[in-house]
Computed example of a mutant assay.
Amino acid sequence: MATATIVSLINMKGGVGKTTLAVGLAWELAKSFRVLLVDIDPQFNATQWIVDPDKYLEWLRTKHTVLDIFSPAISSNSEKNGKVTPSTSIIPVQKGDSVLYVLPSTIDLMQLDAAPRGTENKLRVYLDKVRHLFDYVLIDCPPTASLFSYSAFLASDAYLVPVKPDPLSVLGLPLLNRAMKDYEERSGHHLPRLGLVFTQVRQTEAMSNTMQQVRGQYVGEVFRNTIAQTTGVAEAVEENTPLQTYKKSGNFSDVKASLIGICSEFVDRAKELSL
């Protein structure tokens, strides 16, 4: 029986290409593995990218989202079955020969302000019940220290950090380190870092210097492969198309090769967790 490795993609700084990495990596893994992508960002960008709008709107009317896992009481839609199950909460999406499974988010997550004690454990409980169905579970987190990122921390086996190699974005790494330490002290749960992935990379001297600096500070943690700054992301989202198959992207072949390389490194590092 397969038991998934659960990895959160997290950075407390926004605009670093987190969802681009999450969706691209999920689709690449889905070529060879059963993969669940969990969207716990109230902006639900990953959901919008993967799921056709009409299908998503129909799903909201009759099925469940991650909100129903955190707080079923907020979902007042009487057409929904009250019990959250894999079939009522996970959307299978097929592209070519690959199927990616999605636990969708919703903008209504923003209503979850003052959550009762214990809410932070509900995602972990849910994933413990479904992880045998998958090889990998990726959690796309919001760029804030919040109930949702803490819930992902508690539910995960490791976390992965997307980093845009500019000075302001790199300044966010100590903030992330402090947040992870705080989560560990609050919970007693130690979460290893799977690594850092450079995103939105441009061939400038400043970015090259920043990447060299980060590799020196986090020896052995930074992935060799990087994702270049890419045109066509918005169009790929609009067409619900994986970036590595969206041939209208200005640097399509580079992005495709990068995601293949990142996927290979990810699998190797994930295997080391269980050694």
Rank of each mutant, 00 (worst) to 15 (best):
R34T: 13
S32N: 15
S253V: 04
K18I: 03
L147D: 07
I91M: 08
L103K: 01
S258Q: 08
N240S: 07
L176N: 02
G17A: 07
E221L: 02
W27F: 05
A4S: 05
F134Y: 14
K164C: 07
E184H: 08
I90P: 00
Q217D: 06
V197A: 02
V201S: 09
G15N: 09
I260S: 15
S149W: 01
G24E: 03
V84T: 02
V125M: 12
I107V: 10
V214T: 01
N121S: 12
V125F: 13
Y101R: 14
S87F: 08
Q213S: 13
G261E: 06
K31Q: 15
F44K: 05
I69E: 04
L25W: 05
R186C: 01
V267L: 04
K18Q: 07
E238H: 12
S208Y: 11
L194E: 08
T245P: 08
Q203S: 13
D41P: 03
A152T: 06
L25S: 06
D128C: 00
R61C: 01
I6K: 14
I10H: 09
S258C: 12
V237M: 12
F266A: 11
L37H: 01
D254I: 15
G15H: 02
F252P: 02
S187E: 10
T226S: 09
R178E: 02
E205A: 14
Y183W: 03
N251E: 05
G188W: 04
W27L: 07
L37W: 09
A236N: 06
S87G: 01
D68F: 01
A158K: 10
S274L: 11
L147S: 01
L9S: 02
V35W: 09
E58T: 15
R117E: 07
G82A: 13
S32V: 03
T88V: 04
V66R: 11
L100A: 03
P242W: 10
L160T: 08
F148Q: 01
P165Y: 01
G118E: 01
L176F: 07
K55V: 13
A73M: 05
E265K: 07
K55H: 12
A114Q: 14
R34W: 04
D166L: 11
T241F: 01
L123H: 01
G188S: 11
K271G: 02
M12L: 15
S98D: 05
L168C: 05
S156N: 11
S76T: 15
P165W: 10
M180K: 13
V16G: 03
R202K: 11
R269N: 04
A155P: 01
Y136H: 10
F266K: 07
D41K: 02
E58Y: 04
T47M: 05
V102S: 10
T47I: 00
P72E: 00
S89L: 00
L60Q: 15
S89K: 07
I91G: 06
D113L: 14
E235S: 15
G232W: 09
K55Q: 13
R224E: 13
H132D: 11
V137K: 05
R193E: 13
E184K: 13
N240W: 07
A114H: 14
L273E: 04
I227N: 05
G216A: 06
A26N: 00
